[in-house]
């Protein structure tokens, strides 16, 4: 605490919320410590938005688990384009789509998993492998497509990916819009019978996956429950009433 700023007498209320309450004031303005704390958290959130996905580390992690993988890129060529053109982030570039079509097979996959940078590549790097560790143990004999690592991706890119792979379901594990207290929050979006042109109403979402939010193991259990529900119903989205699920804000 500063020598010049008095502590607010209600400082113990800080135990009740992560909000920046009882932070004192210099005149009416922020104490220096609080000014710099806010700056630091904003800097981390900004860095999370612009941090490029470490594809090599994810490939290595999947390799250790014996899981084949492929890399794809959206039609948004770089981060600046991605931020301005969400429509391009929802479409594959042509080369990626062709590679995925080549990887599709006659029997079809039960599930395609996609690691997508979204608005926080850090979230995918930190939590995506933990989620699928829990999930794969639960799924058992489901026929999995190669795990797709997608750059400059929005949620709906999963529709294009799942469609090209001819997968019956797709799950996007994607970095959510970073908040100051949560630069590494992961979102999981499930779509049954993915194809271009679907809307948010056709998906189910599990959001805020991170150690301080919904922990990855719990998120994997919820996702397993949703996947089985969608398979039984033959649909995802608003039609899939899920007692495990929570309503999450969509990414875009």
């Amino acid at each position: 605490m500063s020598r010049l700023v008095a502590r607010d007498p209600w400082f113990r209320l800080r135990d009740l919320t992560a909000a920046r309450i009882a932070i004192g004031r210099a005149g009416g303005s922020l104490p220096t410590h609080e000014l710099l704390s806010l700056s630091l958290d904003h800097a981390r959130a900004r860095d999370a938005v612009h941090h490029p996905l470490d594809v090599g580390a994810l490939q290595a992690g999947l390799g250790e688990r014996g899981l084949p993988c492929m890399t794809v890129h959206s039609a948004a060529g770089d981060r600046a384009t991605y931020l301005r053109r969400p429509d391009l982030g929802r479409r594959l570039d042509d080369a990626s789509r062709a590679r995925l079509r080549d990887a599709a097979d006659e029997r079809g996959y039960d599930l395609a998993l996609v690691f997508a940078d979204g608005l926080s590549a850090v979230a995918v790097e930190r939590h995506a492998l933990s989620v699928i560790d829990g999930l794969l143990a639960a799924l058992g004999d489901w026929r999995l497509a190669p795990v797709v690592i997608a750059e400059q991706a929005r949620v709906a890119l999963g529709d294009d990916i799942g469609s090209a792979l001819r997968a019956r379901q797709v799950v996007m594990l994607i970095g959510e819009r970073p908040g100051l207290s949560s630069p590494d929050s992961l979102g999981l979006y499930l779509t049954h019978a993915p194809r271009p042109g679907l809307s948010d109403a056709d998906r189910n979402c599990i959001s805020n996956v991170r150690p301080a939010g919904l922990v990855p193991a719990a998120a994997a259990r919820r996702l397993d429950h949703l996947l089985r529900g969608a398979r039984a119903l033959g649909a995802s989205g608003v039609a899939l009433k899920d007692d495990f699920s929570e309503i999450g804000r969509t990414l875009d």
């Binding site: 992560a18 909000a19 920046r20 309450i21 005149g27 009416g28 806010l38 958290d41």
Partner: peptide, 20 residues
Amino acid sequence: PGADDIMLNYQSTSFHDALF
């Protein structure tokens, strides 16, 4: 509080900004 909305994950203006 502190301009940081911990639910909506964006930054707005704070009680301090109003005083300013």
